[in-house]
């Protein structure tokens, strides 16, 4: 009973979000009380749907890059050949988290110029850490008996990695990706301070013209996207974990 209630909530969140993105002016009465007399209540300097898609594209690109690099690093660090890099990569992942996103963005501007690129770099760096950490945990906490069995069955190192270790670590890796996506969705809005086309543009326009309706719109769209994507990825994780015959991990 509870599951269906959650499903209804999720479905209606999605419906409201899509309706708002496709026909924002239908929601004007909702935002009207937040603005002064003649100010527009709905963001008008750009297409909301387009900005949302660009926002999602930026997050997707950065997360895809982060996933590939972080997994490669974690796999390398857990192989015998890369064992030397393990302590360093752990402390690097830790240090990386102390760099504030605004600082990363601002420092990337002189090298990459204004626009989407510094945002991509900042999101990529931020996305690396959760995925790397979770992949590392997933690969280093496998039951030794399973690895021994795989070795006993005559599997080579590569076969063990692809057929045993990665499938077993997959739910944890996915959890890392989910965390990374949710952080990126919110952080991408800061990219608009360096002229990236993201939903942050709406919020910043609102801050500059003292238009609370804009700020709320931008914030709500990003928040709803984050909730829906978080839910969707959690569902995929449960599916994968069930298929792998593992107890579901949060």
């Amino acid at each position: 009973m509870r599951i269906s209630a959650a499903a209804i909530l999720r479905g209606s969140t999605l419906a409201v979000l899509v309706a708002f993105l496709v026909a924002p002016h239908g929601f004007e009465p909702v935002f009207r009380p937040l603005v002064q007399d003649n100010a527009p209540a709905i963001y008008s300097q750009g297409d909301l749907l387009m900005l949302t898609l660009l926002h999602l594209r930026t997050v997707a690109l950065a997360t895809a890059g982060a996933t590939v690099v972080a997994m490669a690093m974690a796999i390398l660090a857990t192989r015998p050949a890369g064992a030397e890099f393990l302590p360093l990569s752990r402390s690097l992942a830790n240090i990386g988290q102390t760099f504030p996103p605004v600082a990363v963005l601002a420092l990337a501007v002189p090298v990459l110029g204004f626009g989407e690129k510094p945002t991509l770099i900042a999101l990529f760096l931020y996305g690396l850490l959760p995925i790397f950490e979770n992949t590392l945990t997933g690969l280093t906490t496998l039951p030794p008996a399973v690895i021994e069995a795989a070795r006993g069955a005559g599997m080579t190192g590569r076969q063990r990695l692809w057929r045993v270790e990665l499938p077993l670590a997959l739910p944890l890796i996915l959890a890392g990706i989910r965390l990374s996506v949710v952080i990126s969705l919110a952080t991408a809005t800061i990219g608009s301070t360096v002229a990236a086309k993201t939903l942050g543009e709406i919020i910043i326009a609102g801050l500059q013209s003292n238009n609370m309706a804009f700020v709320l719109q931008g914030g709500l769209i990003v928040g709803m996207l984050a909730i829906l994507i978080y839910d969707g990825l959690s569902a995929i994780e449960r599916q994968v974990a069930r298929r792998a015959g593992l107890p579901t991990r949060a």
């Binding site: 937040l34 949710v182 969705l185 919110a186 952080t187 809005t189 800061i190 301070t193 939903l199 942050g200 919020i203 910043i204 609102g206 801050l207 609370m212 700020v215 709320l216 931008g218 914030g219 990003v222 928040g223 984050a226 909730i227 978080y230």
Partner: peptide, 17 residues
Amino acid sequence: NLIQTIPSIALFGLLIA
């Protein structure tokens, strides 16, 4: 958890009013 999903610049702005 819901609060965490609101991007920081939006939350800063929303508290102004």
